[in-house]
Design a protein around this nucleic acid. Sequence first.
DNA 1: ATAGGGTTAG
Length: 620
Amino acid sequence: MAAAAAIAANPLLNSSSPARPDNPAANRRNLPTAAPPPLTLLPRCRSLRDLSQVHAAAVKSGLNDDPLVLTKLITFCCLHPSSLSMAYARHLFDRMPPQQDPLLFNTMTRGYARTPTPSLAIGIFVLMLEHGVSPDGYTFPSLLKACAAGKLLPEGKQLHGAAAKLGFHGDPFVLPTLINLYADCGDLPAARRLFDQSDGGGSCAVCYNAMITACARRSLPGEALQLFRRMQAEGVKPTEVTVLSVLSSCAMLGSLELGRWVHGFAQNQGFLSSSSSSVKVATAVIDMYGKCGSLEDAAAVFRAMPERDTQVWSAMIIACALHGRSDLAVSFFREMQTQREEDGAAAGPDGVTFLGLLSACSHAGKVDEGLQLFRAMEDFAVSPETKHYGCVVDLLARAGRLREAHDFILNLSGENSSPVLWRTLLGACASHGDVELGKRVFARILDHDDSHGGDYVILSNLCAAAGRWEEARAVRKMMKEKGAGKTPGCSAIEVGGAVHEFFSGDGRHPQAAALRRMVEEMAEQLGYAPETAVVVHEGMTEEEKAASLRGHSEKLAMAFGLLNTPPGATLRIVKNLRVCKDCHAMAKLISAAFGREILLRDLNRFHHFKDGKCSCGDYW
DNA sequence: ATAGGGTTAG
C-alpha cells in the first residue's frame, strides 16, 4: 500500500509534461564495443557461483563496476531468475550510475515478476519514478504480471492508472496483462469490461486468450467456449494458447464431440507438431480425451508423440487412474523408467505423477501396490505432500482398512493433518457401514470446519442405513442449524454437440414430464428395488422416498440420453458429485436392458457400464 | 527485452 501511495503521489504521473532531469552523461564514456574476455563466459554460467567468478574476473581485468559489465551480469541474472540470482542482480543494480534509460529498470522488473516477488518489482518502478525515468511500453507488462501473481489488486489498479496516464493502457502488450491482472485477482467482471471496451472489441488473439483462459480457470467452461466461437466468427486466428484453454473447457464439460473437433483443428493448424508448445497441446488433448471418456484416444495421441515431458506422462497416468486402470497406469510408469534408463535426460516422475499412480491404485483396490509406490517416492526424491497422504488414507480406507487409515492420519505431523483427510475417511466409514468410527471422525471434522454440508449428509445417511433413525435425524437437524449447504446434484449429457444439464428433482426441463415417465417405466420394468433406506427426510412415505430417488439428476440424464440418441449409442454423462448407489444400480440394469454403454463421470472417476456391469467392479 | 498456457487426492 505504501508503494501504491508512492505511485499515486509521483509528479511524473500527475503533470502533463513528465520531469526529465539531465542525465549525467559521464557514464557513457569510452565504453569498449566488444564484450571483454571474462564476459564471453557468461552464457556458460549455471549458478550464482559461476556468476560471481565472472564478476571477480572482470574486476581483476580492471572492469570493476564498469556499467557494461554490470549490465551484462544483471541481464543474465534476470534472464535466469531465482531469489538468489535476483538478490545478486539487485546488489549489482544498486552500483549502477544514475540512468535515464528505462531498459535496465525493465530488466530488473521482469526478473522480479518471474520469481515472482511483486513487492520488489513495484519497488523498482517506484525507484524509476523517483529518478525521473519515464516508463516505456516494456515497463508495464512485467509489473502487471507481478501484481497478478501476488494478487496485489490495489497496486495493480494504481499501475493501471499510471499506464493510462502515459497512454499505454491500450497497448497490445499491456491490455492482455491488465485483463489477466483483474482475472487473477478474482474480479472477472472488471476483466471482461476491459476486454469488451478495448478498441476493436478485444480483436487481438492474445486478449481473447487472456479472457478465455480466465473463464477456463474460474471453471466457467461454457463462457470460455462461447468466447472461442465469437473469436472464430470475428475471424481472429486462434493460437496454441487458445486451444489449450478450449481443450481444458471441453474436458471440464465432458464434451467429447467438441473436444475431438478441437483436436482436429489443432492438428490442421500444426499445433501438434514442430512447435515449442506442441507437447503442451498434446497434454491438453490427452487430458481432454481422458476426461471425456476415451482412454483409447488419449493413449493413441500419447503414443504418437516423439518427445514426452514429465507432465504429459502424468496426464496419461491420471487418465488411466480416472478409468480405474491401475494396470495401465503402472505399465506407463514402468515404461517411463525404462526410457530414463536408456536416456538419462528423459523425463522422471514428480509429485503429480505419483498422485496419479496412487489414485489409480486406490480406484482399483490395489492397496499393497499403492503403498509400495508411496514408499518408492523417496527413491525418486519426491517428497510426499498432504495430497499424497490423502491418497494413502483413501487407499487404505476404501479397502476397509479403516483403523489403519485412522492411525495413519493421527501419525501425520500438524501441517499435514487437514479436515480433508478426515473427510476422506468419513466417506469410507459410510461405504463400510462403520457408524461408531464415522461418528468419531465426523466430530474431528467439525472441530475444524462445520460448514461442509456433505459431511452431515454422509453421516446422516450412514446412521439411517444402519437403522439408527434418531441419530440420522439429529445430524440433519444440526446441519440445518449450522446453515451448512449441500451442493445440488447436477448431471450433464452431450447430445448432438449440445450439452444438456439436469438438476436433482428438475421440473424445469422442457422434457421433464417425459423423462419422469421414462424413469418410472424403467424402474418398474427393470426389476430394480429403490434403496429408500438412504433417503432420510422427516415424514416421507416409502413411495415419496422412491419418487425422490427417481428424480436424481443421473437418472434424468440417462433417460434423456435414451430418448434422444439412436439405439446402441453410448451415453456420456458427467456428474458434479459422487454417483449415488441407487443410480449406480439402475445404470447397470439400463446398460443390459437397452444394450447401451454408459460412461458416467463422477466427481472422482469414470463408471463404465456395459452388459449389466460397471468397470469400477462396484468398488468406489 | 515486453502479453496469453498443459497434468494435480476425495
